[in-house]
């Protein structure tokens, strides 16, 4: 098992390197020119040349790439070109906002998706199954930012009007023990819900498809014939093999999760990584942009690596065949 993990980890290094080249090219070559963004308000005709030299943009792309990489790896991320704060500090602060949001969204989505998927797969064609199907279609078609705004409208205005409260309903929820947990839960509940809707909708369909496929398998018939309880048959024998395909889908959606975080933070005005990205884009702050993008890329690759490992743990065949069946 550990040999397998090590092999996978080693093999993701070239992917990481290529991705870093691609990310660098996208930001530098296809993104907006930071020098031009800075000089928008300037009357100095030398502004462009001066800022280019200042930012090192007048060097050739390979040289810039190697320089950026060296700085990233050695942790010298420099200062934000707008606020003069250390980029590592900015990103660290933003992460403390974003990680709980993303973490709870994934946990909530996984839990809900598995429950919904299993219920649907166990009772195909039932009213519950049909309801979940319709809800999944709705969830997937729902623009996250619109849902966020509607939820905010509901909780800051409509409910308050309806119930005749003097302040938005969220502040009316009592916090009798005065615990920080209640505060942060109150703060996170809506963003997590909004971020989770699309994930739950997609993942639950996968869980349903994978499990209902599994439930037709011979090993399930055997398990039933042995007289195991239905609960045990489904959750132990069915889930083990059907969870492999869910794990894969979850990892694939890591990129989509990052996009969702950006939108959710923007809608709820949370000062996390998404807000940081949007500000860096607006200001042409490449010192923030490039580390941000590299961290996101590393995150996606690590998620895929984790999925590979989880996959191998759930399905021993993967390790033995060294994952190269085709």
């Amino acid at each position: 098992m550990w040999k397998y993990v090590a092999r996978r980890a080693l093999a993701s290094i070239p992917v990481l390197l290529l991705a870093s080249v691609l990310i660098f090219l996208l930001v530098r070559e296809f993104g907006a020119d930071p020098a031009r963004q800075r000089c928008q308000a300037s009357r100095d005709p030398q502004c462009l040349t001066r800022v280019r030299a200042e930012l090192g943009l007048d060097r050739s792309l390979p040289v810039q790439y190697l320089d950026e990489m060296k700085n990233f790896v050695t942790g010298q991320w420099g200062e934000s070109q707008r606020s003069d704060r250390d980029v590592s500090e900015l990103i660290g602060d933003a992460m403390r906002e974003t990680v709980p949001l993303a973490f709870w969204a994934v946990v909530v989505s996984l839990g809900a998706a598995v429950l919904v998927g299993v219920t649907s797969a166990r009772h195909p064609g039932s009213v519950r199954d049909h309801t979940f199907t319709v809800l999944a279609f709705a969830g997937i078609a729902m623009p996250t930012f619109w849902l966020g705004l509607l939820v905010i409208q509901l909780f800051t205005y409509e409910l308050q009007q309806l119930l005749g409260l003097s302040q938005p309903i969220f502040y009316s929820i009592p916090n009798p023990i005065g615990s920080g947990w209640v505060d942060s839960a109150r703060e996170l509940a809506l963003p997590v819900f909004v971020l989770s809707v699309q994930l739950i909708a997609g993942w639950s369909r996968y869980q349903r498809a994978a499990l209902s496929d599994e439930l037709h398998g011979d090993h399930i018939r055997t398990a039933r014939a042995k007289g195991l309880s239905e609960r045990r048959v489904v959750w132990k024998h069915g889930m083990r093999s059907s969870s492999t395909s869910l794990v894969t889908v979850v990892a694939i959606d890591a990129g989509a999760l990052i996009g969702g975080v950006v939108v959710t933070e923007r809608v709820f005005s949370r000062p996390g990584m998404g807000t940081l990205l949007l500000a860096a884009l607006r200001d042409g702050d490449t010192n923030v942009l490039i580390p941000w993008m590299l961290i996101a890329g590393i995150g996606v690759i690590l998620a895929n690596l984790a999925a590979d490992v989880a996959y191998a743990a759930l399905d021993p065949r993967v390790r033995l065949t060294s994952g190269n069946p085709t």
């Binding site: 992917v15 890591a254 993008m293 890329g297």
Partner: peptide, 13 residues
Amino acid sequence: LFLVIPALVVLLV
């Protein structure tokens, strides 16, 4: 490679 990079972020950039 294209699947690894977070699409929305790249689109924004």
